[in-house]
Design a binder for these strands. Structure first.
Lengths: 332, 332
DNA sequence: GTGAAAGCGCTAACAC
DNA sequence: GTGTTAGCGCTTTCAC
């Protein structure tokens, strides 16, 4: 039904080998033959069937990226970085959303297991370290944004701890001493690290942290609303709040506004990630920016290298440098 | 290197045919043989290579979704709807971002042309109607969110015109008579339709529309800021503004706030799409909600039907019903 | 109920 | 520089 390499060969009066050679731009084919083949391809509207090629070569030049959600633009931007590098190296990026559900994640990982993808990037995973290590033995995988303790797998994240440290330092520099943090329950390494950095900065400046000033919840918007509500009911409410994600910060800001405070003046709030919304929010949100494009590009380069290494893989954890972006929510 | 169906057959002492039958759950295989094979599969950690299967069956059970951007959550939600239905029908959804660039889009469409995907969904495309029709002749494609005039292709969108009409009606019901619109240049059918509906509603209520009250720009945030700036400089500024996207609305709201207005009181602003940010913004944004999950699910069902129809395809355009969501930005 | 064998479309030895 | 051919891993027809 569909036109194949054989049809092209027959029509052009050459062998399939020659057509294949032209297709793959390999040497050892005369100018005239090449032209003839190309014309025939054009004329027959031939498009090579990669299922054949992929099977034969045992590779797909495709990398699967599994993101837990698409709720905000952080992952999108990282994936854009991945795409750029992948294209450059002749690979395609395909992405899939697990919605943080492990059975969907498993289903999606099947593309890796059934050889439909040459490698996979997990941006926050439900898999245990043990499982990841087992998978990594047979397949090429990498973690992005979230590391997993004990997983001996190529990992690229921002330097979360230093980011938390720098955010706190920034607030301290502005004269704040009553500084609270809205973090998450310790299910994500990223927020644990951000919190550690934050606490370290306060300790280094001899600022004590009351338990009242530390809130643990989920990673999302609603959590910010709840937490700030608690803080503002305290006898001595904080004058500054660091949130381990921008979504949390948005929730905190919104609720503080609703309670009549002017964020940036009455209270300073800082987020983490630098999602697109930060620049659009009222007020705009100060934050710790992840180097998204760079992270994506760097990760893909390493992963493709692993794919083509034929064995000894790089399974290090790389922490890329963040930057602090000051906006209205901290009075800038 | 990798364990194949042959290995399983040999180990289990049966033929590859039997293993294949077990793999595909086909009848005509004895209990005992099935169990033996399954045990062997388990023992050898065998995972079937789909490159072989796909080639043989000339199908991949994979559908490619190309999104122009991942800037906001509208597409994500639609894709989630697609995923649900696709999973139900035994298909996988893989997505790719074109960043509204036609050469990236073309590159991504190669997955369709080279048989790596059984079908493709284009959510806003750079292709012309002519090109789309040519592609649709040989491949299974569908348009989502944005229709293309003259394209004889399965299309699912919200009822943009009615949505614009209803948004305007809502503002009129609230007593507004000086109503402006921030739309886009006529490169997208969706905004053209939304604008048409808007104008029709005003006409039906005998409200004249000055040219001053109509602004055409891009689809994004920045456009909202610029447009509202113009409106507010007019001798008689509008008391309500309808924006053809939520991002535009966010920009308009932000700039209005910056100019000292209280949005929802001094001026009402309404968006379109109901992206996640609407509920998180300060103030929350009233909008016309697209039925995302339903659109995605519906589209995939139709597309998969086309894929398996073996010829006569459904290439209708379906317009699904929206809903109006009132929030703070219109004083609700 | 099971096996032998053809063949999906392609690439890459190998021979000339 | 070109052609012949084996075979990638799988499904499926056909025979038994």
């Amino acid at each position: 039904m569909s036109v194949t390499i054989k049809d092209v060969a027959r029509e052009a009066g050459v062998s399939v080998a020659t057509v294949s050679r032209v297709l793959n731009g390999s040497a050892n084919v005369s100018e005239s033959a090449a032209q003839l083949v190309n014309e025939t391809i054009e004329r027959l509207h031939y498009s090579p069937n990669f299922l054949g090629r992929n099977l034969r070569k045992c590779e797909t030049n495709t990398i699967l990226v599994i993101q837990p959600s698409t709720e905000h633009s952080l992952y999108s931007e990282i994936i854009r970085g991945m795409q750029q590098k992948a294209f450059e190296l002749g690979y395609d990026i395909i992405s899939s959303t697990s919605n943080s559900t492990s059975d969907i994640e498993i289903r999606q990982m099947n593309m890796l297991f059934n050889r439909t993808a040459d490698g996979a990037v997990l941006m926050g995973t439900q898999y245990s370290a043990k499982m990841l290590n087992e998978i990594a033995e047979k397949y090429n995988i990498a973690l992005c944004c979230e590391s997993v303790i004990g997983a001996d797998v190529l990992t690229v994240t921002v330097d979360d701890e230093q980011g938390g440290y720098d955010a706190a330092t920034e607030l301290i520099k502005k004269g704040h001493r009553k500084i609270a943090i809205i973090s998450t329950l310790p299910y994500a390494q990223s927020s644990v690290k951000r919190e550690q950095g934050f606490l370290q900065a306060l300790a280094d400046h001899k600022i004590s942290v009351e338990q009242n000033y530390v809130y643990h919840g989920s990673y999302d918007y609603r959590n910010g609303e709840i937490a700030i509500g608690r803080f503002l009911k305290l006898a001595e409410p904080p004058t500054a709040v660091f949130c381990v994600s921008d979504l949390i910060a948005a929730g905190a800001i919104k609720h503080a506004c609703a309670l009549g405070l002017t964020v940036g003046k009455d209270i300073s709030i800082m987020g983490f990630d630098n999602i697109t919304m930060c620049g659009m929010y009222v007020p705009t949100i100060s934050t710790v920016a992840q180097p998204c494009l760079q992270m994506g590009s760097f990760l893909i380069e390493k992963l493709i290298h692993n794919i083509n290494s034929g064995g000894k893989k790089d399974n290090q954890t790389y922490r890329l440098p963040h930057s602090i972006i000051l906006r209205q929510s901290t009075g800038d």
